[in-house]
Simulated scan of single mutants.
Amino acid sequence: MASVAGVALWAAERALRRGRPEARYGRYARWAHPAGRWPVAPLNRVAGSRLLRARGERVPSVAFVSGITDVVHVNHVIDARRLAPLVPAGLEPQCLGERDDRAVLTFLSYRHGHLGPARLGRWRRLLPSPLQSNWRVYVRHARTGVDGAYFLSTAIGRTPHALGARILAEGLPMHVLGRDSRLVVEGGRIDLLPDPGRGSAPAAEASLVPLPERPADGPWRPAVASYEEMPAHCVPQDRALSVQPWRGRPVRQEISLGIPPERCVPLSGTVTSAAARALVGDAEPFAFLIPPYGSVSRRRRTPRCDRGAAPDPAA
C-alpha cells in the first residue's frame, strides 16, 4: 500500500509540474536553500513541490502581523517593455512618464518585528524578527484594472517562514537569506546586504547615507516630474498580485502597511547587485529610507479573486 501511495503522489507531482513549469522568476523559480545546519536536499524537495503548493491553495486565510522597521527602497526606472516579459500573462507594468513608457522595479529590505499570526496576540513577542528582502514590479491586472505589486522574488532570514510562505502564499515566492545578510541603520549610515549564501535568493549590497534635502533631479526624472511623486507611487502598493493560469484568474494578497510616503528620506551612496543588473541593465538606482513610524504592518493571505472580478480593496 505504501508503494502504491508513493507512486500516486509521484504521478500527481509530475502531472502538476506540466501545468506549473519552472520559471526564471516568481513562485515557480528554482529554489535552493543556503545550507548551514539544515538538511538541504529534503528542504529543496519540499519547497519545490507543486503538490504541496496546490494543497496550500486550499488552506484558509490567516492574518499575520509584524512591526517592521528601517524599510530601505532601492528603485530603478526603466523602459516598461523590458519589464513586460517578467510578469505573467494577465498582468502588465504600471506605466509612468509623459509617454507612459517607463516602469519601476524595486528591491526593498526591512527588519520584521516579531512576525507571526495575529491570533497569537501578546505571545507573538516570543517570535523572531527576521530580515526580509522583496523584489517587485508594480503592475496592473489588465482585465480588471486593479493595481498592485508582482513579486519576482522574496527572501527572508528564517527557513520555517520561507517554507510556510512558499507553500501557502501565492504572491510571495519566498527564498532563504544566508547567515551573512544584514541591515544596519545607525549613526547616519545604512549598511545593507541581502546575501543568499549558496541559496537561490537574489543578492545585493548597498552603503547609503541620508541626503540633507530632497533632490531636484535624479534617475526618477523620466518617470515623474518631482521626487515626491516617486515615493507616492512605490510606497502605497499594498496589494500583491499574481495569476493562476491553470484556473484563468488573478490572485491577490492584501498588505496593510499605513506608511506615509512623505516621511521617506532620500538616500545617496553605492548599490551593487548583479541580480538587479540582469533585470534593469544600466539603469541607475536611487534609494530612500522609511524610518520607524509607529505603525504595525498587517499581512493577510486572501482567497482567490473570482473569475473576471476585481478584488475588493477593503477586504
Rank of each mutant, 00 (worst) to 15 (best):
A169Y: 14
A47F: 04
E186K: 13
D70Y: 05
V65F: 06
V209E: 14
R166D: 06
P212S: 07
A89M: 05
A204N: 10
S242P: 05
V77R: 01
R263M: 11
G116H: 00
P130Y: 09
D217F: 11
L52Q: 02
F64N: 07
P60H: 03
P117R: 05
G67L: 01
A23E: 15
G218K: 02
Q237M: 15
S295L: 15
P311I: 10
A165H: 08
V74P: 10
I259C: 01
L183M: 06
W38N: 09
E229V: 01
V46S: 01
D238Y: 11
G294E: 12
D100S: 15
G48K: 05
A203V: 04
R179P: 15
A310R: 12
V224P: 00
P39V: 05
V235Q: 04
V46C: 01
E98Q: 04
A206I: 09
W246C: 07
R277K: 12
A2M: 12
R18F: 09
G90A: 10
D282F: 02
A203E: 14
G97N: 07
S61H: 04
I259L: 10
H114E: 08
G90E: 11
A314V: 04
H233M: 15
D306T: 09
L183A: 08
G36E: 01
H73A: 12
I156F: 00
S153M: 08
L91C: 12
I78T: 12
E213R: 09
P88M: 08
H141F: 00
R189C: 06
G269Q: 09
V65L: 10
